[in-house]
């Protein structure tokens, strides 16, 4: 499996961060950065990282299964993540999520057939004082109203 030169450089640097013989420490970062490039944690990706870090594919798989941001299926071009945890709930997060479901015609962890948007109701994303908060891919948006959400999504169609 081949990666972009930028990702290979990042991997090479990452592997210098850990004590000798403990390069497995790079597994979670490598999965995160590779997933961004590949689009999902594919069986080929797991096999490749297992080989590079000298662990079994099963050891990689059990790590992938644990972390909620690692996903084996591709997401939409824009992954819409709406927080409904307490701080966001108190300021309209749940209504915002319902609005997004209707607007996008999909539910939790679903992707539109067109592949444009996917949706996820997420747990606290650490923007509680500026609630309700969402993330579009990695970008935070604070104090989001249904109107603001509509504008953001229409700009990404």
């Amino acid at each position: 499996m081949t990666f972009s030169p930028e990702l290979e450089a990042r991997f090479a640097d990452l592997l210098t961060h850990y004590p000798p013989g403990r390069q497995r420490g790079a597994l979670v970062p490598m999965l995160m950065y590779a997933q961004d490039e590949v689009g999902a944690v594919t069986p080929e990706l797991m096999a490749e990282l297992a080989k590079r870090l000298d662990v079994s594919v099963l050891q990689v798989d059990e790590v992938v299964g644990y972390y909620s941001m690692l996903h084996k299926k591709p997401q939409g071009k824009t992954h819409v993540q709406i927080c409904t945890n307490v701080a966001c709930m108190l300021r309209g997060g749940a209504e915002l999520y319902d609005h997004a479901c209707k607007k996008l015609g999909i539910g939790h962890k679903q992707t539109q057939a067109s592949g444009v948007f996917s949706l996820e109701e997420v747990e606290c994303i650490g923007a509680c004082s500026w609630a309700p908060a969402i993330q579009l891919n990695y970008t935070f948006h604070h104090e989001v109203t249904t109107d603001k959400l509509d504008q953001l999504l229409e700009g990404l169609q």
């Binding site: 961060h17 420490g25 979670v28 970062p29 999965l31 995160m32 950065y33 644990y66 972390y67 909620s68 941001m69 690692l70 747990e123 606290c124």
Partner: peptide, 10 residues
Amino acid sequence: LYSQTGAGAY
């Protein structure tokens, strides 16, 4: 000193 990313886990 290095950064280390998590991957979504309270």
